[in-house]
Design a protein around this nucleic acid. Structure first.
Length: 959
RNA sequence: AGGACCAUAGCUCAGUUGGUUAGAGCGCCACGUUGACAUCGUGGAGGUCGGCGGUUCAAAUCCGCCUGGUCCUACCA
């Protein structure tokens, strides 16, 4: 039998020590192949949003992975054929930049120094070196991912899938190439998508320029010029018109006339276009179709030439380039630019243009305005709209079914309001620019001959074959790579072997749930839906669970520059203060902030961060996982759930100490179940129902809360205490002891099952010790992971037991209250008397005498038939019944009178409230009978309580 | 400018279809080392549910307006 792995310490540490068990269990599960699909049951699949291959785990990942793992473990226990697909993303720009920085630092070289092939080799090298980092961290989180199926968005299979999709889209005219205005990052020298642009507010200058009218024309007001305003004077060089609103009578006579473009001397027309806003400035606007998205549209409508004046690095060209709206070069336009500007970068050119306009008396005025500027979210550089050759996906036909899939409920968002966000974006979708001028990524499968003809095919050979191109004709492949989201858009089916029709694809697609952040709905979710519907005729997933951002305790976004980043691994393992400060201040982009960050860190974490263990971290995330809103990570809760782990651990210690080596009735021996036994089974059943329902509704906060309450407030606080008198009292029968041991063990075993999806490590560790006693361990290598999720059997809900225990608790709490109020030592044995109760109360007393005296620390407890015989006592009410602790000599008369007065006032208020309600005719006439009865019941209850207090007051006053 | 979400105890948050004496954890106060646990136990204090108005017999809950906050989209020539 016991292979070394089965052997365990039989004694448990006094406090829970997560670090000693977590890694061990993860390795064991992985070795035993417990993360692979069982092949039985209904399929349940989650595809992990692939993290950047060279990244490291941040709080957002940890949160997201906890939710996915909880869902996966839960469904696995329910007997589903469960796949959690793992993989990483090549993350084009991010990874390329990272490696570029690395070789700049280490070798002082740029990627151009190395050349494309050598550079890409370096990236692969880096991938192999660092790619395991995040997957190791995922393992620390306990994520039960199927590592045997790990994928990468640039592995061979994905390469095939990407080529296939691109080629098929091209063949259906859904991918096209064209010279279009795109968001251009002059630092990275690549196009980026709208989504990668971050708009930032700032103050800018607003220059008003005079554009002289040509041919001696004057305005109605008699001026020889028009005034246009701009925040980007350098684009003047590329103006191809001035627009006025067609309804603007001031300029009606000028439409069709010309202005002479200052500095350049080009004659440009005055056109009428709705884009010009009559109420803004002069009502005239300069039109630069090659450098502004709105102007591009005006240019399209008015048939204007596109005049590009920028290089790819946003420097002024020696002479401009002119194209028509289709991107064809135009020969008949004067493209000369003033030599003085050639080679200036855009900001220097701006200064120069302003200065020159001013010098010529053409600068009417300068204002300071607030405006927003587009920045590249990777480079931080100002984005320039630039005319370049790019590949696009025509999204209109793809968007339609993608919208319908959500409309008709094939895909559901949780929470639902994100559907609106999705619709509003999808209804107004621009064609998706998918080419990037990068080296790291899927190279576009298009080849060109010397004449510039393009051939799209899966391989060069196929291109030659298909188009009959002789082998002596040189073909060169497109230099560009595809947007990372193009390949990750294929994630749900690409990971399952598409384009092959694999068994996995048939079994696990569509996947069940996508767990993702709202910030990625446009980037990823929408594109996945479009591409997946197109190529599989299936939705990629049935449910999208959208979670919020993990922020710090103050609600700030976590960022390196703010110095408020928490590393999930540090929360698990702990970190000392110096290491934490170093981590937060080392290697900063803005070193001047280091001092303040170090100070803030020292004050927030004077002793560093203690180890909390993975389960406590997971539980914290789950308890804070309110759907769809950001979470402020609460260190206090993390401590609290670490304590919860310890509580569970110690309750288990108690159970083991009292059951190991004892008869727990696991072979069907006779048992006698106590009231407490029946009660805890009933409450367990209710808890199973609650937790299961919460999981079904994705309310992990409710699930974790229900379990926490049950474990701490019911099982530990009451049931364990109630088990002690039975186990430790000599008079209890063997059958009763056996019944209690069996219940202790069985309920704990069920608790561990309920806890497992949320807290996999501690539950497994304890389960291994408890399962033999419960008789649920099957074989040496058994695991809680493989056990069934508990089913609620409503027949076990014994309402009488629940009522009786509530009564018992009531009496015990009443005595404790008396102790506290009278300032009596907790350990001092008291005599108690019950009176004014019903027959049922009397029976309960005789049935529970033992429990009452033990838990309330009573020397005696008696039933008094005639309440008028009661000695002077401290009194508490349990329903109608009074709990009395005789104590004539101990009462502080004045203090007690004051206290009773306050209590009576309190009851008076309650009584008045209810009486008022009942006196309200509208209420009596319209409220449902049940509500009215309830109010009447309350009234009686309050009045009874008041009577007791008044009697008591009279007695004491008479002393 | 349009839209979304949020505002409940000192802090972080629950509060299902309107009917509770409005809850939990942490923190705070008092007492306490009884044989699972001081990462603990017992008891307690603390909220006019952001403001105003409306619907209703009844509003933390539904509606409108306002204030404050977070975010998204668009625009800023």
């Amino acid at each position: 039998m016991s292979s070394g792995r089965r052997q365990q310490e039989h004694s448990m540490e006094k406090t829970y020590q997560p670090e000693s068990i977590e890694t061990r269990w993860y390795q064991r599960w992985e070795e035993d192949g417990r993360f692979t699909p069982s092949g039985e049951g209904d399929p349940f699949a989650i595809m992990i949003p692939p993290p950047n291959v060279t990244g490291s785990l941040h709080m957002g990942h940890a949160f997201q992975d906890t939710i996915m793992d909880t869902l996966i473990r839960w469904r696995r226990m329910q007997g589903r054929n469960t796949l959690w697909q793992v993989g990483t993303d090549h993350a084009g720009i991010a990874t390329q930049m990272l490696v570029e920085r690395k070789i700049a630092a280490e070798e002082g070289k740029t990627r151009h120094d190395l050349g494309r092939d050598a550079f890409i080799d370096k990236v692969w090298e880096w991938k192999h070196e660092s790619g395991g980092h995040i997957t190791r961290q995922l393992r620390r989180m306990g994520a039960s991912l199927d590592w045997s199926r790990e994928r990468f968005t640039m592995d061979d299979g994905f390469y095939k899938a990407v080529q296939e999709v691109f080629v098929r889209l091209y063949e259906e005219d859904l991918v096209y190439r064209g010279k279009r205005l795109v968001n251009w990052d002059p630092t990275l020298n690549t196009a980026i998508s709208d989504l990668e642009v971050e708009n930032r507010d700032q103050q800018g200058q607003f220059w008003h320029f005079r554009y002289p009218l040509a041919d001696g024309v004057t305005t109605d007001a008699g001026l020889d010029h028009l005034v246009v305003a701009t925040t980007r004077p350098e684009t003047l060089l590329g103006d191809s018109a001035v627009a006025v609103n067609p309804k603007d009578e001031r300029y009606a006579s000028l439409v069709g006339k010309f202005v002479e473009l200052p500095l350049v001397g080009r004659r440009i027309p005055i056109v009428a276009d709705e884009h010009a806003d009559m109420d803004k400035g002069s009502g005239c606007v300069k039109i630069t179709p090659a450098h502004d998205f709105n102007d591009y549209e005006v240019g399209k409508r008015a048939g204007l030439p596109l005049i590009n004046v920028f290089s790819k690095t946003a420097h002024i060209l020696e002479s401009a380039e002119a194209f028509d709206i289709q991107g064809r070069p135009l020969g008949d336009i004067d493209t000369a630019l003033p030599a003085a500007y050639a080679g200036l970068d855009r900001f220097a050119a701006r200064k120069a243009v302003v200065a020159d306009m001013d010098a010529q008396g053409l600068l009417e005025k300068t204002e300071t305005v607030n405006n927003t500027l587009p920045y590249g979210d990777r480079s931080g550089d100002v984005i320039e709209p630039l005319l370049t050759d790019q590949w696009f996906v025509a999204v209109e036909t793809l968007a339609k079914p993608a919208i319908e899939a959500v409309e008709n409920g094939d895909i559901q968002f949780v929470p639902k309001n994100y559907e609106n966000m999705y619709f509003s974006w999808m209804r107004d979708l621009q064609d998706w620019c998918i080419s990037r001028q990068l080296w790291w990524g899927h190279r576009i499968p298009a080849w060109y001959d010397d004449e510039g003809n393009v051939y799209v095919a899966r391989t060069e050979a196929e291109a030659r074959d298909k188009h009959g191109i002789a082998s002596d004709v040189a073909l060169t492949q497109d230099e560009d790579v595809l947007d990372t989201w193009f390949s990750s858009g294929l994630w749900t089916f690409g990971t399952l072997g598409w384009p092959e029709q694999t068994d996995e694809l048939k079994t696990f697609h569509p996947s069940s749930v996508l767990v993702t952040g709202f910030d990625i709905i446009f980037f990823w979710v929408a594109r996945m839906i479009m591409l997946t519907l197109k190529f599989t005729d299936e939705v990629p997933f049935k449910t999208v669970y959208v979670h919020g951002l993990v922020r710090d305790g103050q609600g700030q976004k976590m960022s390196k520059s703010k110095g408020n980043v928490l590393d999930p691994i540090d929360l698990i393992d702990g970190i000392d203060l110096e290491a934490l400060v170093e981590k937060r201040t080392g290697n900063m982009m803005q070193p001047q902030k280091a001092k303040a960050i170090a100070k803030a860190t020292r004050s927030e974490f004077p002793d560093g961060i203690e180890a909390h263990g993975t389960d406590a971290l997971r539980y914290t995330f789950l308890s804070q996982a309110t759907t769809g809103r950001d979470i402020k990570f609460d260190m206090g809760r993390l401590d609290g759930y670490r304590n919860f782990c310890n509580k569970l651990w110690n309750a288990s210690r108690y159970v083991l100490m009292n059951t190991e080596g004892e008869d727990c009735g696991r072979h069907g021996e006779d048992v006698e179940l106590s009231l407490a036994d029946r009660w805890i089974e009933a409450r367990l059943t209710q808890t199973i129902t609650q937790v299961t329902r919460a999981m079904e509704e994705f309310r992990f906060d409710h699930a974790s809360q229900a379990l926490y309450d049950f474990v701490w407030n019911e099982y530990c606080d009451w049931y364990v205490e109630l088990s002690k008198p039975v186990l430790w009292d000599e008079s209890a029968s063997e059958a009763a002891k056996r019944g209690t041991r069996r219940t202790l063990v069985r309920v704990l075993e069920s608790i561990l099952r309920l806890a497992h999806p949320m807290m996999p490590y501690i539950s497994e560790e304890i389960w291994q010790r408890v399962a033999p006693l419960a008789g649920t361990l099957e074989g040496d290598n058994d695991s809680l992971m493989a056990k069934a999720w508990p089913l609620a059997d409503d027949a076990l809900i014994d309402q009488d037991a629940i009522r009786d225990i509530e009564w018992l608790k009531g009496v015990i709490v009443a005595v404790r209250n008396i102790r506290a109020e009278m300032n009596i030592a907790p350990g001092k044995p008291l005599d108690a008397v019950l009176t004014k109760g019903s027959e049922a109360d009397r029976t309960r007393l005789s049935d529970n005498r033992l429990f009452l005296s033990k838990l309330a620390k009573l020397a005696s407890i008696e039933w008094l038939e005639d309440a008028s015989q009661a000695p002077l006592s401290a009194t508490q009410l349990v329903g109608e019944m009074e709990v009395l602790v005789p104590m004539a000599d101990l009462i502080d008369k004045d203090a007690e009178l004051a206290r009773l007065g306050k209590e009576i006032d309190k009851q008076d208020k309650l009584i008045m409230g209810v009486e008022k309600k009942l006196a309200n005719e509208g209420f009596v006439a319209k409220a449902p009978a049940a509500v009215i009865d309830k109010e009447r019941g309350k009234l009686e209850e309050y009045q009874a309580a008041r009577r007791v207090l008044v009697e008591q007051r009279e007695k004491i006053a008479a002393l």
